[in-house]
């Protein structure tokens, strides 16, 4: 797994590189915005950690150029508190995640793992997290090698949540996602499906939290 760290502060960059290399990633570092932009146009990485305030070219410009090229590499944006703007918060610029400096390095590692996992999961049709494996093609989920025996509706819900990790999904959105127009969607039925799915997923590093009065947020956690 190759990671590019674009950060102009040498100390912070060195600390990040050391940490990520210690976890077995191949890490390159770039401190200049224009050079990073040039590098990204030719080389491909599995993850980009991108500072916003860079010499010669801002992180936003680099990110915008990448997405215009059709480059879907996951991007984790680093930002200082004073630079928080709606577009970062809304991740409108095409960033996949963001962290506010100063941050906890354990948190950085966790976010990196999540982003890389998400990308590889999409590419291979197989989502893996710890002992939890979900095979999109076979429509089968297993935990520690044991088939969870999910029903068709439960697989649909699981797929929906995996595609919307860390995003709020209302009950209506879940119902819309699993029922066709001809079927009468029932919110009660959604709740029952979720109750069963949660029971089957017990012990898996995949959680669906209920937000009272609204819906659900699913997230994966390190074991």
């Amino acid at each position: 797994m190759r990671i590019l760290v674009v950060e102009d502060n040498d100390d912070l960059a060195a600390a990040m590189v050391e940490r990520l290399e210690g976890e077995g990633y191949a890490v390159d570092r770039e401190g200049d915005g224009a050079e990073a932009d040039g590098l990204l146009a030719h080389a491909s990485f599995d993850l980009l950690i991108l500072d916003i305030n860079l010499p010669n070219r801002s992180g936003y410009e680099i990110l915008g150029a990448m997405r215009r090229r059709g480059d879907r590499t996951p991007v984790l944006v680093l930002t200082a508190r004073s630079e928080i703007e709606d577009r970062v918060i809304g991740l409108d610029q095409g960033a996949d995640d963001f962290m506010v400096k100063p941050f906890d390095f354990r948190e950085l590692s966790a976010r990196c793992r999540a982003l890389i996992r998400r990308k590889s999961g999409e590419a291979s049709n197989i989502f893996t997290q710890g002992e939890f494996v979900f095979d999109r093609a076979a429509r089968r989920a297993s935990l520690a090698g044991l088939d969870l025996e999910l029903r068709s509706r439960e697989v649909q819900v699981l797929e929906l949540f995996l595609a919307n990790l860390d995003r709020v999904l209302t009950k209506e959105q879940v119902a819309d996602g699993i029922y066709s127009f001809s079927e009468a969607p029932s919110l009660n039925a959604v709740e029952q499906i979720l109750t069963r799915l949660r029971r089957k997923l017990e012990g898996a590093p995949f959680h669906i939290r209920t937000i009272r009065g609204l819906g659900y947020i699913a997230s994966v956690r390190d074991a």
């Binding site: 809304g90 860390d166 209920t210 937000i211 009272r212 609204l214 997230s219």
Partner: peptide
């Protein structure tokens, strides 16, 4: 509110707090 909630829930590792919304 929804975006803020997503961020807070993502940072809440213990997962013991019950969040609710009243819109």
């Amino acid at each position: 509110i929804l975006r803020l909630l997503e961020e807070i829930v993502r940072n809440d590792r213990a997962e013991r707090i019950e969040f609710g919304v009243d819109l």
